[in-house]
Design a protein around this nucleic acid. Sequence first.
DNA 1: ATTGCGTTAGTGGTCTGACCATTTATGAAA
DNA 2: TTTCATAAATGGTCAGACCACTAACGCAAT
Lengths: 199, 199
Amino acid sequence: MSNPSKMKVYQEVLNEIRRFIQERELEDGDRIPSERELSDQLNASRASVREALRAIELLGLIETRHGEGTFLRTYKPFHSVELLSTFVLTEAQTKDELKEVQYMLEQLCLQELKRLNVREIEELESLDGASEQIHNELFILLFNQLGNQLLLKIWHLVAGFQQMTEQEQLDASDVQSIIDRIKRQEYDQAIDTHSRLYT
Amino acid sequence: MSNPSKMKVYQEVLNEIRRFIQERELEDGDRIPSERELSDQLNASRASVREALRAIELLGLIETRHGEGTFLRTYKPFHSVELLSTFVLTEAQTKDELKEVQYMLEQLCLQELKRLNVREIEELESLDGASEQIHNELFILLFNQLGNQLLLKIWHLVAGFQQMTEQEQLDASDVQSIIDRIKRQEYDQAIDTHSRLYT
DNA sequence: ATTGCGTTAGTGGTCTGACCATTTATGAAA
DNA sequence: TTTCATAAATGGTCAGACCACTAACGCAAT
């Protein structure tokens, strides 16, 4: 690479790729030059080019197809959230913190219930009251209906981690009472009930 | 690598590194085995190990020091936003989701302001009103004072994504007005102001 | 001409081994 | 004991090789 700065080669490569995409106004699905081409044109080894490509592949910015090539791809942050979760959630978090965050996220969700229409509320009927997982099922459904994949993903990861710490989970009947409140569109009471379960 | 699945070697390496960190409960600043050690222990080439390491380095999860080694580093997600920002293709809906989640998290934060004491509020004085990063600085400070590190990290993550998608950031003067409100302990107005900035 | 299929060129996936640059540990000399 | 040159360990980078997969090509049979 030409740039003699302290930046690593793979980062320079990243810069060049970025410029390439920008100049040609590439879009979703468009092809990026092959690793060997990039290697030649940028005067970098293929190994360095690959370091750059693997990094943004992991991020979900490109898609690689064996034998075909490398293609640009629209970015979905919630994919990266999963990637990072291990690192973020593992670090010396107290269980209380996890629980608190889960609680907050669920409160956020419940506070948005007003946005749902009758038809969406009716879908709550499909929940299996006998299931041990009723809590998870409820919020997966609700977050889904709110239509925010990122938020769902975050909650899901936090909840999953929470479950691993083997704290006592919410009682199924308590969750059921929240569901009942929601069905009757008594949202404030639902929020209240949920709030009480966490304190 | 032993695993004969269709997963790429660098991804397997990534999993192993993750496990390594998790099992030993490594924290900020702790050292990760050298590239050659990992290469030996995981039966992967050093090139593949590097692909994995470079990827999470770009994510900001590790720090590499030439001649010394590789170290775990928490808390600085997306230190290289600049490297990625311009060529991240994001759909409009995704951007909206991102914005919404960030907004929600910040509202969550502001709603907890009552819990802070005078001394903590006074720390807002330390914020540099001229900084472009005033928005980030404000919430890093606030989330920190609320004492939930996990929530801070999640917000940080989302804010990083947001920055990557190159959406228009909040105006510094608007943020400043939020800060002023908080200083005068007009929390409800602060929440209101913040809310208006996002709509 | 059309269809079918082996060949081949291009591409990503992975490994080996080499060399350089930087930092730290080592050990001999003062 | 201190000082400082040397060695060892580590990350940074490269060249080249081989495999696996895909798509395009071209020849042969229809």
